[in-house]
């Protein structure tokens, strides 16, 4: 009688509305390592999964954007804490996907630090980008930022963890909700990251993570009429053109990051938050009765 224990393999599912369903399509694809060896079966999401995820993100937007900035900051910090606690698992997955140990460690710690970085920005970027405007009439006039709404994100294919974290963090720090298509070629840690999110006080639906083929899902991620902005970060002229063309259907905002090096600290800044913010300008009259002016 053999006493060898059989390892329990993980089923990688997608993350929608704080739940881990399988794709509605029932399809899968195989994630492999660089040598082509089987790593896991991944959900091969369909346009209907995209639709469901976007609907869920829309439903979560009101509540998330209404959270206090301080609270959003706390939640991002909590995500970092959770990631720190599960560092080993991410290093292992990154190594399975082809990173060497040092690179994997580096990517995970950078990801944690990046979450902390954007956590800190949650209640600060508004002050950087807002203004009180000195109009020439008796009105108080100010411009403040508001989140755009639902953002679809295609995560970078390489640097599958730091890339995802670098795109997701500024989007949700700014009060948006999002649907992320994980790296097609290195999907493992994206799904595991969803587990981190799910244990981090992040309300369900704020971040939704799908796995599948970019070529199949990008048209839907960029053309859905209830999406406010789309974020793409590969150098693929055909794909970029398609994203921008589809964006014109409902005047979506597009953020295309072709040259970013996500492992570099230069590529973290409040401007990434600003890329997913609308400027709202508000006017109100200022009463100024008779001689009631400040005398000092």
């Amino acid at each position: 009688m053999s006493t060898k224990r059989l390892t329990v393999l993980k089923t990688y599912k997608i993350y929608i509305g704080g739940q881990f369903p399988r794709t509605e399509s029932g399809r899968y694809y195989t994630a492999t390592n660089a040598k082509g060896e089987h790593l896991a079966n991944m959900c091969l999401c369909s346009r209907k999964d995209v639709r469901d995820a976007i609907g869920t993100a829309r439903g979560a937007f009101g509540g998330w954007s209404a959270r206090s900035a301080f609270n959003r900051g706390q939640i991002l910090y909590r995500i970092a804490e959770m990631l720190e606690g599960r560092k080993a698992q991410f290093i292992e997955e990154l190594m399975l996907q082809g990173s060497n140990k040092a690179a994997a460690e580096n990517e995970v710690t950078l990801s944690i630090d990046r979450l902390i970085y954007y956590s800190g920005w949650c209640d600060k970027y508004q002050q950087i980008f807002s203004s009180v405007n000195p109009v020439a009439s008796s009105h108080f006039n100010f411009s403040a930022l508001e989140p755009m709404g639902v953002v679809t994100i295609v995560a970078p294919q390489q640097y599958s963890l730091i890339g995802l974290v670098s795109l997701m963090s500024p989007v949700i720090a700014g009060g948006n909700t999002c649907v992320i298509l994980a790296s097609e070629v290195k999907p493992l840690c994206s799904v595991t990251f969803a587990e981190v999110l799910n244990s981090s006080d992040l309300p369900g639906g704020v971040v939704n993570i799908l796995t599948g083929k970019v070529s199949e899902l990008l048209p839907h991620l960029s053309s859905h009429m209830d999406v406010n902005a789309v974020c793409y970060s590969e150098t693929n002229a055909t794909a970029i053109k398609m994203v921008k063309e589809n964006a014109s259907l409902n005047v979506k905002r597009t953020a295309i990051y072709e040259n970013e090096k996500w492992m570099d600290e230069k590529n973290q800044s409040p401007y990434y938050i600003n890329d997913f913010q609308e400027v709202k300008t508000t006017w109100h009259p200022i009463e100024n009765i008779g001689g009631a002016k400040a005398g000092y």
């Binding site: 405007n133 020439a136 006039n141 300008t281 508000t282 009259p285």
Partner: peptide, 12 residues
Amino acid sequence: ANTYNKFDPTSP
């Protein structure tokens, strides 16, 4: 708010 169609060069 309590006004309408106001414009100013300083106002985005």
